[in-house]
């Protein structure tokens, strides 16, 4: 039997829970203004709309800088270094934190990611039929959406608003539809972010879209792994910088990989290329560095998660055997199975 403290998924869940509490209720622990906010640009979806959080998501300053500084400066033809420095500072802060943790922010820290895993957990414990892998064609169709959202909602629309081409409704459009804004506020007992804003048709459309998207995630998240992560613009931003991060995912390809495919099956983001790739570096743009592929690789030393050159987790047949067994036991323990067993017992009596 694998002890919990050796189970990477259990360790990750503990870290996720601690980060969730800190990022959603942080100000209760360290005060509203932990030295001018913990960070102006912590690359997670800890939302500034949340009354109790202690930091900001990087996407808020970026949208505001496009709307209030860069856009007006372009319009006036006065783009100077002083205008660009705040943008570069935001991206620089993001980059420093990103170098330290790479895309592990998504898989280990992000509260919205944790919430979606929690939804999946509820679905699994209710015994709902889970979709283990999405169709590769569907995955390929979904992948560009995150880039589109990053370009349009984080940069282009706010920039156009700053230049006076569009109304204030498009000043921070990603925040308007972000599910983390609704989720973190609901966890604080505040339902205001669910309200439909009827002040202008534009605000009304954004708030309807936001609530619809959140409802969609609530249901799809029960049976599909990480539905919003697949279109999250932060995942796209991470992808730009992924080569400079210290946390790496490496693979020593063997011919057995072609027949196995357990790593791709374990991947919550359905990155089928993990199995087929013959490259050493397998940190793909959609990866959240959750480490499940390494956990479920049955061959010794084929896959590894490393911090710089230090191995954090290396695939191992013994670990795989115990981890797989623990997973089966975990999945069997659900409400549906409980009813089936109860019925069987009654029939037997």
């Amino acid at each position: 039997m694998l002890p919990h403290w050796k189970n990477l998924s259990v360790i990750r869940k503990v870290v996720q829970l601690a980060c969730f509490i800190f990022l959603v209720y942080g100000s209760v622990i360290i005060g509203f203004y932990a030295a001018d906010k913990l960070s102006r640009a912590l690359p997670t979806l800890a939302c500034a709309y949340d009354a109790k959080t202690a930091d900001y998501c990087v996407l808020i300053p970026l949208q505001h800088q496009m709307d209030h500084r860069v856009g007006p400066a372009i319009k006036a033809g006065q783009v100077t270094l002083a205008i660009l420095i705040p943008v570069l500072t935001t991206l620089g802060t993001f980059l420093i934190l990103f170098v330290l943790l790479n895309k592990a922010f998504c898989g280990w820290v992000c509260p919205l990611g944790t919430f979606q895993e929690f939804l999946g957990l509820i679905g699994q414990k209710l015994g709902l039929k889970r979709r283990d892998s999405l169709d590769p064609k569907l995955v390929k169709r979904i992948r560009p959406v995150k880039w589109l959202i990053l370009a349009l909602l984080v940069f282009i629309f706010p920039l156009m608003t700053g230049m006076g081409f569009t109304g204030h409704e498009l000043g921070d459009p990603f925040c308007k539809i972000c599910p983390s804004r609704i989720m973190t506020n609901l966890f604080n007992g505040n339902m205001d972010e669910l309200r439909i804003d009827t002040s202008t048709p534009g605000y009304m459309v954004w708030s309807i879209l936001a609530d619809t998207l959140f409802g969609l995630i609530l249901v799809i998240g029960l049976t599909t792994r990480q539905p919003f992560c697949r279109i999250c613009p932060l995942l796209a931003m991470h992808a730009i910088f992924r080569k400079v991060g210290l946390v790496r995912l490496v693979k020593n390809y063997t011919s057995r990989c072609d027949k196995c495919g357990l790593c791709a099956k374990a991947c919550p983001m359905d990155i089928h290329e993990i199995q087929t790739s013959k490259e050493k570096d397998i940190l793909f743009p959609d990866c959240t560095l959750c480490g499940r592929c390494v956990e479920f690789c049955p061959d010794k030393g084929v896959m590894a998660m490393k911090y710089a050159i230090i191995p954090i987790k290396v695939s191992d047949p013994q670990y795989f055997k115990h981890r797989n067994k623990a997973q089966k036991v975990w999945e069997k323990a659900n409400l549906r199975q409980w009813f089936i067993n109860r019925k069987k017992k009654k029939d037997h009596v």
């Binding site: 309807i208 619809t212 959140f214 409802g215 969609l216 609530l218």
Partner: peptide, 11 residues
């Protein structure tokens, strides 16, 4: 807001 949320859940 609840109507929109419910609509999303139906989708």
């Amino acid at each position: 807001g609840f109507v929109a949320l419910f609509f999303g859940m139906m989708i």
